[in-house]
Design a protein around this nucleic acid. Structure first.
Lengths: 220, 220
DNA sequence: CTAACGGAAACTTTCGAAAGTTGCTATCGT
DNA sequence: ACGATAGCAACTTTCGAAAGTTTCCGTTAG
């Protein structure tokens, strides 16, 4: 992997990790200093992030971290409600036993990881977030179609931004969410594709609603 | 639009137009001479095409036009069978009257354009191909979700490569295809989303089968 | 005759300075 | 005081040469 791939990874994790705020301008002088690289490498990394929907660019106006809005969250959620269940259903139908085992494993660590960490009572712990992402990726991994898988994963990644910037999760959501995760696991081991799709669609709608409720300004 | 956007367009049309053969190596010296540009501009254009699936890249081994294979066609078709009908159904449910009118117009043009041109009896005319693409894009355009639309259009574009390199179309297919197009139009004006999705799924399967039959070597 | 090694050619990747563009500010005229 | 204009400053974009890689071929030793 070339050098620009390295800065691409770092930029991506910095955006997803909340170290760069949505809407923030990404100037080359700053970037080069921050990551110790040349403009060329930074430029290539940024253009890759643009196609993934994490960075926006205007001609001759540079690059910015994408800005969050209720309208966009609604559109993103609508897209995820359509494609993720579809991909998940295909995984349930066609995934092999190794996949099934990976899902069971991912659910196990998710279930055993505490929702809130030592610090905040508002944001889920980094460990839980990681386990949560891993579980959902594991669910989709069973789909044998590379293209569909990467489409679904791409949408989930865009949603990740909204998750990291969500103001707060309600205390009561924790159990409901855990219940839904168990339901998804159940659909996998029982190989019930239609139930799987239905449950995932509901889960996406539910969690998106939590993000909307948590925010301060009015929904679009 | 910058200079690299210009060469991006030219490269894209050259690939889609069959002037660059699948699997062909794309060397910077050649590219710079062909399009009269610098390596930097060519590089940016290529990386953009990689994310669209029209060009493949290996680290330190340069770029190539994607190579066609039966396995890949099968996967691509499978993906299209899932997402295009979904997007089309959403268009039928939510598209406004202006969209409906655009579909009627696009179908009119398509129906009046002769399938075979002056020259070959094997390949559809360039005019028909253009009208065909325009019709299908018009169908998807009614979907209000920008992300879903661009996903569906992206998949169609990848399929375009297989269409331009298909060995030949059977003579009898012309009428069957025209019939299916009329069916799609009908589903739009009658606002029947489930029929629309079903018809489009069938149409995709059918045309993909024609491509497979037309090829000379054995399917995977 | 085969295999390993060395070296050169061709190409990809990276870099940073030059050129180009935009938006702001200060100055001048009304 | 207000508006217009010209110049400036900051930044983006582009370019092509330098550096780094891989591949291939010819040579030599076994």
């Amino acid at each position: 992997m070339g050098k620009s791939g390295e800065i691409y990874e770092r930029l991506r994790t910095d955006i997803l990790g909340g170290r760069l705020t949505p809407g923030q301008r990404l100037k080359f002088p700053d970037l080069c200093a921050r990551y110790g690289t040349s403009v060329g490498a930074a430029r290539e990394a940024l253009t890759r992030l643009v196609t993934e929907g994490l960075v926006a660019s205007q001609s001759n106006h540079g690059f910015t971290v994408v800005s969050l809005s209720y309208g966009d969250l609604a559109e993103l959620t609508s897209a995820r409600r359509e494609v993720e269940p579809l991909v998940f259903a295909m995984a349930v139908r066609e995934g092999d036993m190794a996949w099934e085992a990976a899902v069971v494993a991912a659910h196990h660590v998710l279930a055993r990881t505490p929702f809130f960490g030592e610090g905040s009572r508002e944001h889920p712990s980094a460990a839980w977030s990681a386990a949560h992402t891993a579980f959902h990726l594991a669910l989709l991994e069973g789909c044998p179609n590379r293209r569909l898988r990467s489409i679904a994963c791409g949408l989930r990644e865009e949603a990740e931004l909204y998750r990291t910037w969500a103001v707060s999760y309600g205390q009561e959501s924790e159990e409901e969410i855990a219940l839904e995760h168990r339901g998804l696991l159940e659909a996998v081991v029982e190989r019930d594709a239609v139930s799987a799709a239905e449950r995932l669609r509901h889960h996406i709608s539910h969690t998106a609603r939590l993000l909307i409720k948590g925010a301060t300004d009015t929904p679009a």
